[in-house]
C-alpha cells in the first residue's frame, strides 16, 4: 500500500486534518449510543481492508508529521523516553516486532533484511538506511526502543511480568492523555491505574490484569479508549499541561466544529518472546467535530454519548469546560433517528 504523507503540525498553528479516506477509517469507539467502562478487550486480529485494524501496526497519512512531533517532544524533554536497566531484552523484542510488522505490511516504505544478527533497516519516508547488529546496542544511534519508536506511530510502554503483576518499566510516551511516564515508571498495574475513577470499584482492573498475565505470544489483543482534546495536539502530557490547559477555555459555539476533537486510543498488547514482557501500544487518532459529523451515524451517536456520560468520567477526562457547548453543537447533527448497531459508518 502506498501512502501519501501529509505535511502538518500538532502544535502552534495546528494544521493537522484528516483526508476523507482517513475519516472513513477512523476507529470510532462507540458501538452503542451510550458509554461505560467495560473490559472491552478483543483479539487483535486483522480487520477489514483499509481500516485502522487491517495490520497489527497501523501506519497512516500522519506518519511523517507525527514522527517530527515526537522528535520535538524528546528534544525538549528526554524523560519521555525511559527504560529501567533490566528491560533491554524487551527493547530488542519491541524493535523486532515493529520492524517486522512495518516492513511486512508496508514494503514500499519500509524494508528489513536479516542475515543472522546482521540487520539492515530501510525507512524511506524518514530517509533512514541503517545497518546494525541485533542485540548490540553500540551499533544503533539510540537504544533499541528509542530507535524504533522514533520511527513508529503510537506511544509504547513495556511491562515486565513478575510477582503476579505487570510493571511498567520502560516506555516512550510523547502523545499521552494526561499521564506521566517519568512519574509512573516502575509502577505495577494497579498503581498506575489508581487515578482512574469508577473502574476500580467495578473490579475492572483485577480482571484485566488476570487476562493480560495470561496473554500469549502470537495472540495480541486490543481495546479502544477515548477522550477529547482541544486543538489537534498530540502532546497533552501533564508535563506541558501548564501550556495547553488554557486551550480548554478557548472553545466558543462558533469554533466547536474546528477546535474540539474526539481522540481515540487504539491500545494493542503483545506478549514479547525473549523477555516475556508485554508491549502496550497506545496509538492516538484524532478527529475534529466537523469531520466526525460527515459520517451521520457517528454525529448522532457521539451527541448521545457525550450528552449522557457520567459526570465523574467527564471530569476525569477533562471534558467539563466544553462538554455542554459541544453537545449543543452536535445536537444540530442529531435528528433523533435510530442508529445501527456496531462501530462502522452506515
Amino acid at each position: 500500500m502506498t501512502l501519501h504523507f501529509k505535511k502538518e503540525t500538532f502544535r502552534d498553528d495546528y494544521t493537522f486534518s484528516n483526508s476523507p479516506e482517513a475519516i472513513r477509517r477512523f476507529p470510532f469507539p462507540f458501538e452503542k449510543d451510550e458509554y461505560m467502562y467495560s473490559v472491552n478487550i478483543e483479539q487483535h486480529m486483522p480487520g477489514p481492508q483499509k481500516s485502522a485494524f487491517e495490520f497489527p501496526i497501523d501506519i497512516d497519512e500522519h506518519y511523517v508529521a507525527e514522527m517530527e512531533d515526537r522528535a520535538k517532544v524528546l528534544a525538549q524533554d528526554p524523560g519521555r523516553c525511559q527504560s529501567l536497566p533490566h528491560m533491554i531484552t524487551a527493547e530488542w523484542d519491541l524493535l523486532e516486532l515493529l520492524m517486522e510488522s512495518m516492513s511486512k505490511h508496508y514494503p514500499e516504505h519500509f524494508q528489513l533484511t536479516r542475515d543472522g544478527d546482521d540487520w539492515r533497516w530501510v525507512n524511506k519516508p524518514l530517509g533512514v538506511d541503517q545497518r546494525f547488529v541485533f542485540g548490540d546496542v553500540s551499533t544503533l544511534p539510540y537504544p533499541p526502543m528509542e530507535y524504533i519508536t522514533r520511527q513508529c506511530q503510537g506511544d509504547f510502554a513495556l511491562l515486565d511480568q513478575r510477582l503476579d503483576n505487570l510493571w511498567m518499566d520502560a516506555g516512550v510516551i510523547t502523545a499521552q492523555a494526561d499521564w506521566s511516564l517519568d512519574f509512573d515508571i516502575g509502577m505495577n498495574f494497579m498503581e498506575w491505574h489508581a487515578p482512574v475513577p469508577l473502574a476500580k470499584d467495578m473490579g475492572i482492573f483485577e480482571r484485566a490484569l488476570k487476562f493480560l498475565m495470561n496473554l500469549q505470544q502470537g495472540r495480541p489483543v486490543r481495546r479502544l479508549n477515548w477522550t477529547m482534546t482541544i486543538n489537534p495536539r498530540l502532546d497533552t502530557s501533564p508535563e506541558n499541561y501548564d501550556k495547553w490547559g488554557v486551550e480548554r477555555t478557548t472553545v466558543t459555539p462558533e469554533n466547536v466544529g474546528n477546535k474540539v476533537h474526539l481522540r481515540v486510543e487504539l491500545q494493542a498488547m503483545w506478549r514479547l518472546p525473549r523477555s516475556n514482557a508485554i508491549v502496550f501500544s497506545i496509538r492516538a487518532y484524532m478527529i475534529k467535530m466537523e469531520e466526525l459529523v460527515t459520517v451521520p451515524k457517528w454525529g448522532r451517536r457521539f451527541h448521545r454519548v457525550l450528552r449522557d456520560v457520567k459526570p465523574e468520567l467527564a471530569e476525569y477526562k477533562g471534558l467539563t469546560r466544553y462538554r455542554q457547548m459541544t453537545v449543543d453543537w452536535l445536537s444540530k447533527h442529531d435528528d433523533g433517528a435510530p442508529t445501527s448497531p456496531g462501530f462502522a459508518p452506515d
Binding site: 509502577m187 489508581a194 501533564p238 499541561y241 480548554r248
Partner: peptide
C-alpha cells in the same frame, strides 16, 4: 496535589491548578 504516589520518586504528583484559567 494529586492522590497519585510514585514509589520510585517517593512522592506525590503536583499539577498546576490554574492552567486552564490562569
Amino acid at each position: 496535589v494529586r492522590d497519585h504516589f510514585s514509589r520510585r520518586h517517593a512522592a506525590f504528583q503536583g499539577v498546576r491548578v490554574d492552567a486552564e484559567v490562569p
